[in-house]
Design a protein around this nucleic acid. Structure first.
Lengths: 194, 194
DNA sequence: AGTAAGTTGCTTAGAGCTAAGCTACTTACC
DNA sequence: GGTAAGTAGCTTAGCTCTAAGCAACTTACT
């Protein structure tokens, strides 16, 4: 009925359970284990969707962890990075309003206030009054903020590239995966009930 | 260096920005917009990984929203559902220790305490002392808890099935997507630096 | 067998996000 | 042109999750 602020997306009734042995062959993974457990106790359940969404969720989890660590090595956080990157992507003069930032990042204005506080204290951005609207504010990247975001975006992409390589996905498979995901993403827009 | 408690996985420096027009053709989506914006301000960046991970992240977001709403219609929450589903999957007598639950769900014991409090107050599970270990506890699904989790798991799967259908993915494409995601997931295990 | 270090198990304090509340500007009506 | 309703903009309260602290059992050493 209302917006509700998205988070992660299991909904498969699974999450952690660590693997015992190291499965090197691409035959069985944690999602198969969950599905197998359901099959044992509820053989009637049609669990095919978990094959896709369970893995999508876990990829999100694992990669989130990795890029989070990469950002932390640079002294920042993913949430903070998102703010800096949005300003960077907007181009010169790297200025946006808090309102624009919070709607772009799908964040409430309260959460944005907190992030801006931290980033401003860290000297990565600057708040200044909007000359045309006395109630509004302008948020601008500082030199330090710009330098940090350049390093961070490269680090994040490196991490993702490394994962693709470790997975053994070549260019063709990567493109195919991207195409299927694009199609899937188009279907996940809410509004079409079960 | 430490566990750190995963969350979501953008790291692409993007998140929200709503689409202006309704793109019905499968030609351009929000991820393309982000990539295009980066290309405009940083043409040197090799943004191919965003094609995959950006979409994975957004699918997670969107589907998380949808199943969250489905659970809420049943009067529960995804976090609570995860607890109930883990107990259900364990089979009769639907009993696990808080410790086992928190490690399976990759949750701290503190978070688990809170969830168990709520679920016990709602009458969906019961805490009882472990007869063999005087410091330990047993958590058991009640009749109401069992009934709820049966309905909720079906509702979540229905939601996911509907999304696959809306995306127009047939069985072959779904299987192919699952296979590529399995491969990708195997590569996202941390430990192999950039 | 006695004892002390180590491990496992759970409830209480701090950090982050979302939802209500207040201020300032706009604009449409008279 | 004055005025009042409406809207946009931002900081303060409530709640959930993670990180430190306390109790109970085990086990290895003497």
């Amino acid at each position: 009925m209302d917006t509700e602020g998205a988070r992660d997306a299991r909904g498969t009734g699974e999450a952690g359970d660590p693997e015992g042995a190291g499965n090197t062959a691409a035959t069985s993974d944690a999602v198969d284990a969950i599905i197998g457990q359901w099959a044992a106790v509820r053989p009637d359940l049609e669990t095919t969707p978990m094959e896709v969404f369970g893995r999508v969720y876990r990829v999100t989890q694992a990669m989130g962890d990795r890029v989070e660590k990469a950002y932390r090595r640079l002294g920042t956080t993913r949430g903070e990075f998102d703010v800096l990157a949005t300003l960077r992507r907007s181009g010169e003069p790297y200025t946006l309003s808090p309102r624009r930032l919070s709607s772009t990042l799908m964040l409430t204005t309260g959460g944005m206030t907190g992030r801006l506080d931290k980033l401003e204290r860290a000297g990565l951005l600057r708040r200044s009054p909007d000359p045309h609207d006395r109630r509004a504010l302008q948020v601008t990247l500082t030199e330090e903020g710009l330098a940090l975001v350049e390093r961070a975006v490269a680090a994040g992409l490196d991490e993702q590239r490394a994962a693709l390589k470790a997975a053994g996905l070549d260019a063709a498979e990567t493109a195919q995966l991207a195409a299927l995901l694009r199609k899937l993403l188009a279907g996940t827009r809410p509004g079409d009930g079960a």
